[in-house]
């Protein structure tokens, strides 16, 4: 779904929750007159289950789109081995192969990207522009952060991940 220039993606979990509660409401309203009298606020509340994830996704993706030009200019291309906790806060660009993909169904994907020097977790807090799969060669733009905000190993907070073709 496109809102303005932003391609909004709703996670399968949000859709599943919406479908589950729609069915629940349908069954409840058919069997109970008390529920029928409450439909005036239950139906809008049901749609909010879909509207809120859409709005959040739109806001996060438009924010990331705004950040991208800044990262394109500022980020330094580094090998994964050079990323360490002293670099927290630095924008970086890495190129590597996707070895694992987690939590894609939540619209909060996490990738394990590796190059010849090592591997690093790449966390994205919104849905990516492209559908990135295991074994794809990608370019990642992002900022070095601690895994748990103030502690943990360095990971990349991804602003953009895109597939590239390497000769």
């Amino acid at each position: 779904m496109k809102i303005g220039n932003v391609d909004v993606k709703v996670s399968i979990v949000a859709i599943a929750v919406f479908v589950f509660f729609t069915l629940l409401l349908l069954v409840a309203s058919l069997s109970s007159p008390q529920v029928q009298s409450q439909l005036i606020w239950l139906i809008p509340a049901l749609f909010m289950l879909l509207v809120i994830p859409i709005a959040l996704n739109y806001m996060s993706r438009s924010q990331y789109a705004d950040l991208l030009p800044h990262y394109e200019v500022e980020a330094k291309t580094v090998r994964i081995k050079l990323i360490n906790e002293n670099m927290v806060g630095k924008p970086v660009r890495i190129e590597g192969v996707v070895e694992r993909v987690y939590f894609q169904f939540l619209n909060r994907p996490q990738y394990l990207v590796a190059d010849r020097s090592g591997a690093i977790s790449v966390k994205m807090f919104t849905s990516p522009d492209e559908d990135v799969k295991v074994n794809d060669v990608v370019e990642v733009l992002g900022q070095v952060i601690h895994r748990y905000i103030v502690t943990g190993d360095p990971v990349v907070n991804c602003v953009s991940i895109r597939k590239i073709k390497k000769s």
Partner: peptide, 9 residues
């Protein structure tokens, strides 16, 4: 060394 490790190339 410190500047390099910080990414201040």
């Amino acid at each position: 060394f410190v500047r390099f490790s910080e990414g201040n190339y």
